[in-house]
Amino acid sequence: MLRTALPVAVAAIFSSAAFAVDLSTDAQKAAYAIGYQFGANAKRDGLPLDAPSAAEGLKDGLSGAKPAAEPAALQAALDKLRTDLEAKAKVAADKNAKDGAAFRAEFAKTKGVKKTESGLLYQVLTEGKGAKPTATDHVKVNYRGTLPNGTEFDSSYKRGEAVNFQVNQIIPGWQEALVMMPKGSKWKVVLPPALAYGEKGAGNAIGPNQTLVFEIELLDIGGAAPAAP
């Protein structure tokens, strides 16, 4: 569920046959990877950065040069950007909350759908016969995550590799669902924002107050996590 941009950056560095900059040393490659990661994170988070200006600011900051504009003007621009982003997030949060509530209400009417006290909705697609994991168990799952409109934001199926993690180290909705699922089960789960990423969202793909839809397939259950040394 959680992925960083660094592997992408490293892959981009070493898979390209031609570079626009000199990357002949490890130090240059590492520096490029850091810059790439910063850019990828900004894109993921929906931060509208002008690349040439950001690069120039980075260069001036690293060299210790005098800023290209008065500090007061730069701070004012940052404050405006923050205000604009907050206003945009507020509009998105209100829309997502309204649309998500309507989606969950409609999904709750689907045959076989059950609702827990927390507001989690689930539909058993395949009934497993195995044991159920506990909060401290490690599990192996395949999953697909979409927004209510069907937009897919993540899928272990597409990557061709199931994921392993400890149950109590993921978002609340997954924690609640997994401990109810017998091994071998496949469920469709709809999470209200409070059981997913809440008011903050998760990057550009998952907005604030976003309802999330998952298909979760519990493939295997491991033992409890080893004690810390």
Rank of each mutant, 00 (worst) to 15 (best):
K66H: 10
K66A: 13
P67C: 06
P67I: 06
A68Y: 10
E70A: 15
E70H: 14
E70P: 08
P71I: 02
P71K: 05
A73P: 02
A73V: 13
A73W: 05
L74H: 05
Q75P: 01
A76F: 08
A76W: 04
A77P: 01
A77F: 06
A77M: 07
L78H: 05
D79M: 10
D79F: 03
K80F: 03
L81C: 09
L81T: 11
R82C: 04
R82L: 11
E86I: 14
A87H: 11
A87R: 11
K88L: 07
K88E: 13
A89Q: 07
A89H: 11
K90E: 15
K90T: 13
A92M: 15
A93Q: 05
D94G: 15
K95C: 04
K95W: 10
N96W: 00
N96L: 04
K98E: 14
D99R: 03
D99S: 07
D99Y: 03
A101C: 04
A102T: 06
F103T: 00
F103N: 02
R104S: 06
A105C: 05
E106G: 08
E106T: 15
F107P: 04
A108K: 13
K109E: 07
G112I: 01
K115V: 12
E117Q: 09
S118R: 02
G119E: 05
G119V: 07
G119L: 06
L121D: 04
L121V: 05
Y122H: 09
Y122R: 01
Q123C: 04
Q123T: 00
V124L: 05
L125V: 09
L125S: 06
L125G: 06
T126I: 13
E127Y: 02
K129H: 10
K129E: 14
K129T: 15
G130E: 05
G130V: 05
G130K: 01
T134L: 01
A135G: 07
T136Q: 11
H138R: 09
H138D: 03
V139D: 00
V139T: 03
K140L: 10
K140S: 09
K140R: 10
V141K: 01
N142L: 12
Y143F: 15
R144A: 13
R144N: 10
G145E: 09
L147M: 06
P148C: 08
N149L: 01
N149Y: 07
G150W: 02
T151Y: 12
T151V: 12
E152N: 10
E152I: 14
F153I: 09
D154H: 09
D154G: 12
D154W: 02
D154P: 03
S155M: 08
S156N: 05
Y157R: 12
Y157K: 12
K158S: 14
K158A: 15
R159N: 08
R159V: 07
E161M: 10
A162P: 15
A162G: 07
A162L: 04
V163R: 08
V163H: 08
N164S: 12
F165S: 01
V167S: 00
V167E: 00
V167Q: 00
N168H: 08
N168K: 15
I170R: 13
I170C: 09
I170K: 10
I171D: 14
P172I: 01
P172A: 11
